Amino acid sequence: MKVGIVGCGQLSRMLALAGWPMGFRFSFLADPDEPVRCIEGLGSVVRLDTTMTARDVYGGLGNPDVITVERESVNVPLLRQLKVFCPVYPDPDIVWAIQNRHREKTLVAGLGIPLSPWEVFREREPVQEAITRIGGLPVVIKSTEEGYDGHNQWIIDSRETLEAFEKEREKLLQGPAAKDPHEWIVEQKIAFDREISVIGARSPDGNILIYTPGENSHNQGILVHSVIPAPDLSGPLHNKARDYIYRLLQETGYVGVLAVECFVAGNELLVNELAPRVHNSGHWTIDGAATSQFENHLRAITSLPLGNTAHQGGVIGMVNLLGQKHSDDSQAPDQLITQGTYLHWYNKTSRPGRKLGHLNILAENEEELSGSFKYLQEAQATIP
């Protein structure tokens, strides 16, 4: 089975590493200036240019049996054209919906799934009116596209922070991209208790399997670590999380792995974001589940039976390893490997805050896992 993947980052790497033992072979589509170190040796690479047709891309990828994506920021018109030659999963239409926060929230709300109150505003439309309609400050403003790991997001909790955003908006509207349409979401800043995520997979025949929800901790918008199962998650909240992702998978006819990030606020569960792909908060499944999210994504898109999603053992932790400085020669921190700890290194150049790899930790209980987190937090400063 030949699989083409749009993108050459760590998610493509882990998909290929999961698929090689299954006999799959891979090719990758790279943007013109996209780094490819993550997938070196795992398949051929086609670098996209403006002269290429969908037929050129398909042939360059080696006529794959199926095409998938590792990110939502992709050329959807090209994906739609590639459907002439082979299946493309997830379907380009659902990728198109989720890659824009306005369309994403419209999709979620249309299924009756609760969200934080939100409004959309464009260009120079007055943001204060939108803020008033959702109940006033504090709010979070997010660009509807190209926002991840805290980028293109502003917390507005005072007149001063609102004025700072307005100055940034004006610079953008007068800058090199002034001719492009600009759109933002403003949403009520929820005083949530914690964030959880739930990951599920759906095959073309409609079979759905869901992983155990985990709790996520962030710093400046970047995922620091996850704990699975989410500690002390009540039965009703657990059921809501499973219901939300089941409805999203089923009602959209989704094929592949989908991630849903949610805010827990008392007895309420509010959807924050979706990801139409394998997801950082699901990296624990490589060592902590019977079948990883990466293998199940491949199983789904190739119409193979989905694998068991049960988590293994007691408590599982996933820790992102972030770059501390700029370096073209980042080395895998083997010194962090201990019994019950499993390192996954992405072969990326280092820069501050960049995800260079992750560790999965299998622990007997939350106390043991907390000790491992503390040790790793102190040791991460040694990573180049």
Rank of each mutant, 00 (worst) to 15 (best):
residue 134 I to Q: 12
residue 170 E to M: 08
residue 156 I to F: 11
residue 44 S to W: 01
residue 332 A to D: 02
residue 127 V to S: 09
residue 39 I to K: 10
residue 208 I to W: 00
residue 252 T to D: 01
residue 346 Y to S: 02
residue 253 G to W: 05
residue 203 S to K: 07
residue 26 F to T: 00
residue 207 N to D: 14
residue 30 A to K: 08
residue 241 A to K: 09
residue 383 I to V: 07
residue 28 F to P: 10
residue 21 P to H: 03
residue 246 Y to M: 01
residue 333 P to R: 11
residue 7 G to T: 07
residue 378 E to A: 15
residue 34 E to G: 05
residue 44 S to L: 03
residue 183 E to A: 15
residue 222 I to Q: 07
residue 61 L to W: 02
residue 224 V to P: 07
residue 168 E to C: 15
residue 8 C to S: 12
residue 28 F to G: 08
residue 116 S to I: 09
residue 131 I to V: 11
residue 50 T to S: 11
residue 265 A to R: 14
residue 259 A to D: 05
residue 382 T to M: 11
residue 283 H to I: 09
residue 153 Q to A: 05
residue 324 Q to M: 06
residue 194 R to V: 13
residue 261 E to N: 11
residue 249 L to Y: 07
residue 379 A to E: 14
residue 98 I to V: 13
residue 163 E to D: 13
residue 344 H to N: 07
residue 384 P to N: 14
residue 383 I to K: 00
residue 41 G to Y: 04
residue 20 W to V: 12
residue 245 I to E: 09
residue 154 W to K: 01
residue 286 I to D: 08
residue 309 T to P: 13
residue 248 L to Y: 03
residue 220 Q to E: 07
residue 45 V to M: 00
residue 217 S to R: 12
residue 148 Y to D: 06
residue 87 P to S: 15
residue 333 P to E: 01
residue 2 K to T: 02
residue 329 D to I: 15
residue 179 K to Y: 01
residue 71 R to G: 07
